[in-house]
Design a protein around this nucleic acid. Structure first.
Length: 825
RNA sequence: GCCCCGAUAGGCCAACUGGCAGAGCCGAUGGUCUCAAACACCAUUCAGUGUGGGUUCGAAUCCCACUCGGGGCACCA
């Protein structure tokens, strides 16, 4: 191999970075707000960050991937809106305030400044004209405004309930923020507490959240859809009313197995429910019951969740009456029945429900089989049977199968007016109150005479009082309660003395509609501009971590449907396509916020340069896979980029030279590389697209050194294609190459290379000839060879004849022009 | 316990609707350069696709069972 450049130039990545940043600042190639822009609009959105310190490896991966998508569609001629903002309310700011005595506001905005500058240096293709921060009063006023719309529709309401409580953060948590019984933020075991809190009525949207997922199939990861489906947890069954001896009102229970109604042998109410307390009152077991409830309340979620714990409960000395046969069922209070699911009470059918059977065996209660499944009697086996079978011991249901029995009993219950078909959801209403400072104040005034009074719109935003002088220490009530002057207000309705609600909203409220605000972040008269929303939304491509598969994405979908019902948007799903990127780890351990950063992004950027880090993130594998930084090589990426850059200095033809006169072999390789890279990009196989560019660099290097030579116009065509394609992954290198090729900045807006289909057609293809599925010969044929000709060519092959060993030919499978399979007799 | 997803070279990963298992990167080995090393460059290397069946002319790809790994839900009646 000839050595073309003796004194090899070296590629100074850091100098190149410093060179182009100010140029891009000046050109602002990613502005999307020109109303006369003729390009078709497209909305590409990265999940916005929380401003906790500087960017880390996870951000670097996410924004590298989001940038590939945004920059690709820009090259394809779209006016891409790719905005960024900060999800800047939340606990860490407050914790920093407590720990270091700094103002949460100052801490937050300092971090935003740092992250913003890091994003600039990382060459993120954001439209910097559209920045928003959810902690700005101009933003959170619209949280409050939307809250009031929800309140008017009855979708925001207050109720007393047992709520998840984090003893460390001293605040309530939504169901979604309790992970495996631990606080999502601080991993403290969560307990229950009875509090009156604000909720959003998401359960009323459960069916729509479920059904509308059909439209997302194929464009959202199946995994995310499955997780949402599980979370919503729809089940169908029946409500059945049981009379209670000595009580006027019957009690309704929900069951998914109404067919087993005749198998009920006892009745259980949730120990921590109001109903249990009422039934226990005056009973001989009252004292025992009170003690039991105390114990249950004190238990942490983690204890409750343990599956192999023993069943506990108290017999209340009361009886329920089975509506189908008049049997008296003893009523027990137990903690295995949940107060906030269904009606907080169940009919227990131990023969066909494992939990009921475990309880029956613990307390020696009868077991009656009503579905003959052919399995061993649960009373002796200890295993409840839930399979198919014929109904027995069930009066009018005897002989029916499960489905028929469910239909029949449901009809009978309706006739007897003591039951009906029913649907239940695992999903609970969304608890949005937080007893913290750094969030959106809930715009409600509590008046002793008028009750809950909304703050009038012209008084929005209800701004947070200064943090100075407020006690931020977690103490179970909001720090805002200490801001006496702020709390005391005149009731907007009657003018009398009243107090503000001192809780703040869950920060997931902020992120449930921010994607709408990006269309016009500076409008202060509306939350978002309907015309702009119509122009840009729904988001064509959303990019973010799978950690938000349930929480954020479910809430945002819910908000969108509510806004649709309010007539504010014309679509019901906010994100048309979703790409989940994986996480970045090191040597098998993850690098999450809580576990500390094993690899510092700034170190990697210093060592290898921005482009090499970005390229490594994209090239490491499919975007949704996790990356182990130990498995990939930023150094290898840097080496490749230097090789690509070197090519741009080798090109000897002039800009604008006619490529059609160039070397055809190289031209074919170039056009095929662009074609394949394009297809890979559109199906999110970014790593494959990068491989195609690497391949093109390799063949171009060979063409320069030992092929057509550096002066051939095909070399320029190839290197220009490399530069444009690299602009998605390695913007600095691409820009520098573009300049060295004699062009003006910026390569980011140059346009995607156009593939000449004529150059994709091969002159001849290698046809594989198999005998009995085994490779026996290869023959070169024209790409348009006919089946007939190919068949004859193959049969004429000496290797084929040898492989046939004189046997006859049974069939010949011909797939022109690539393959022939000769099947011997 | 239930439900998803995955398993291809020493590592990370490719392989369009079933059709030559290998595109790319890392590593390793050899060479060039060097006083030497590092860097760089050139070249070489390695699997028959987790296991067992099935469908097919033909299976990494489709089907069934299992193993291992990852994830989700889990006392939700």
């Amino acid at each position: 191999m000839t050595q073309t450049s003796e004194a090899r130039e070296t590629y100074d990545v850091h100098a190149v970075q410093e060179k182009w940043l100010p140029v891009w600042d000046e050109l602002a190639p990613f502005r999307s707000g020109d109303p006369d822009d003729p390009r078709p609009p497209m909305y590409v959105l990265d999940m916005f960050p929380y401003p906790s310190g500087d960017l880390h490896m996870g951000h670097a991966e996410a924004y590298a991937l989001g940038d590939v998508v945004a920059r690709y569609w820009i090259q394809r001629g779209y006016n891409v809106m790719h905005p960024i903002g900060w999800d800047s309310f939340g606990l860490p700011a407050e914790n920093a305030a407590i720990k270091r005595g700094v103002d949460p506001r100052a801490w937050t905005y300092d971090n935003i400044r740092i992250q913003r500058e890091s994003m600039r240096r990382y060459a993120c293709s954001f439209d910097w004209d559209r920045v928003l921060h959810t902690s700005d009063p101009e933003y959170y006023r619209w949280n409050q405004w939307l809250f009031l719309r929800f309140f008017e529709k009855g979708l925001a309401y207050r109720k007393p309930s047992l709520v998840n409580w984090c003893p460390k953060d001293q605040t309530v948590l939504a169901n979604e923020q309790v992970v495996g019984g631990l606080c999502e933020r601080c991993d403290t075991p969560v307990t229950k507490k009875k509090l009156t809190q604000w909720y959003f009525g998401i359960t009323g949207y459960a069916d729509r959240l479920l059904e509308d997922m059909a439209a997302l199939r194929g464009s959202w990861p199946e995994k995310v859809l499955t997780m949402q489906r599980n979370w919503i947890g729809r089940s169908t069954g029946a409500d059945v009313e049981f009379a209670i001896e000595g009580r006027g009102e019957p009690v309704t229970v929900y069951t998914t197995r109404p067919d087993t109604l005749h198998g009920a042998t006892f009745f259980v109410v949730a120990a921590d429910s109001d109903l249990a307390a009422e039934l226990a009152m005056g009973s001989p077991a009252e004292g025992e019951f009170t003690q039991y409830v105390g114990k249950v309340r004190a238990e942490s979620e983690i204890e409750r969740l343990s599956t192999d714990r023993e069943k506990t409960g108290i017999f209340l000395h009361r009886y329920a009456v089975n509506p189908v046969n008049g049997e008296r069922l003893p009523i027990w209070a137990a903690d295995y029945v949940l107060a906030d699911y269904g009606h907080g009470a169940i009919m227990a059918v131990p023969a066909h429900d494992q939990r009921d059977l475990d309880f029956a065996r613990a307390f020696d209660l009868p077991v009656r089989v009503v579905v003959d499944t052919g399995d061993e009697d649960p009373a002796s086996s200890g295993i409840a049977t839930s399979g198919e079978g014929r109904l027995v011991n069930s009066g009018p249901l005897d002989g029916l199968d499960k489905a028929a029995a469910i239909a029949r009993i449901t009809d009978l219950l309706v006739e007897g007016r003591n039951g009906r078909a029913a649907v239940n959801y695992r999903l609970r209403d969304w608890l949005i109150s937080r007893q913290r400072y750094w969030g959106t104040p809930i715009p409600i005034v509590h008046c002793p005479t008028c009750g809950e009074v909304p703050v009038p719109e012209d008084q929005l935003p209800v701004e947070l009082p200064p943090s100075e002088g407020l006690d931020m220490q977690p103490k179970g009530t909001s720090p805002l309660g200490g801001a006496n002057e702020w709390v005391s207000v005149d009731c907007p309705r009657c003018g009398g003395p009243a107090t503000r609600d001192t809780d703040t909203m869950d920060t997931f409220v902020d992120s449930s509609w921010y994607f709408l605000r990006f269309t016009a972040p500076h409008r202060n008269d509306v939350p978002f501009d309907p015309d702009e929303v119509a122009r840009w939304l729904p988001v064509a491509q959303y990019v973010g971590g799978v950690t938000h598969a349930i929480l954020h994405l479910l809430y945002a979908r819910f908000f969108t449907k509510v806004l649709y019902d309010l007539g504010m948007v014309a679509f019901t799903e906010p994100f048309t396509r979703l790409l989940n990127q994986g996480m970045v780890g090191m040597n098998g351990s993850s690098m999450s916020k809580s576990r500390g950063n094993l690899v510092r992004l700034s170190d990697e950027l210093d060592a290898h340069g921005v482009d090499a880090v970005r390229l490594t993130m994209v090239f490491a594998g499919p975007p949704e896979d996790d990356i182990d930084w130990a498995d990939v090589s930023a150094h290898g990426s840097a080496r490749f980029l230097a090789r690509a850059w070197r090519l741009s200095g080798d090109v000897q033809s002039a800009p604008g030279v006619d490529a059609s006169a160039g070397d055809e072999g190289l031209r074919r390789q170039t056009h095929r590389a662009v074609d394949e890279a394009t297809r890979a990009l559109e199906s999110f196989r970014f790593n494959v697209a990068v491989a195609r560019v690497m391949e093109l660099v390799n063949v171009t290097r060979k063409a320069v050194d030992s092929g057509c030579g550096a002066a051939d116009p095909a070399v320029r065509e190839a290197v220009e294609a490399v530069a444009v394609m690299l602009s998605l992954f390695a913007p600095f290198t691409a820009e520098e190459m573009w300049a060295r090729l004699g062009h003006q900045p910026t390569v980011a807006r140059t346009g995607w290379p156009v593939v000449d289909p004529a150059l994709l057609v091969e002159e001849s293809v290698t046809c594989v000839v198999q005998v009995a599925g085994k490779l026996r010969d290869r023959i070169d044929v024209p790409p348009d060879v006919s089946d007939e000709t190919l068949r004859e060519l193959a049969l004429a092959s000496r290797s084929v004849q040898r492989a046939l060993e004189g046997r006859g030919v049974r069939t010949v499978v011909v797939r022109a022009p690539r393959l022939v399979n000769v099947v011997p007799a």
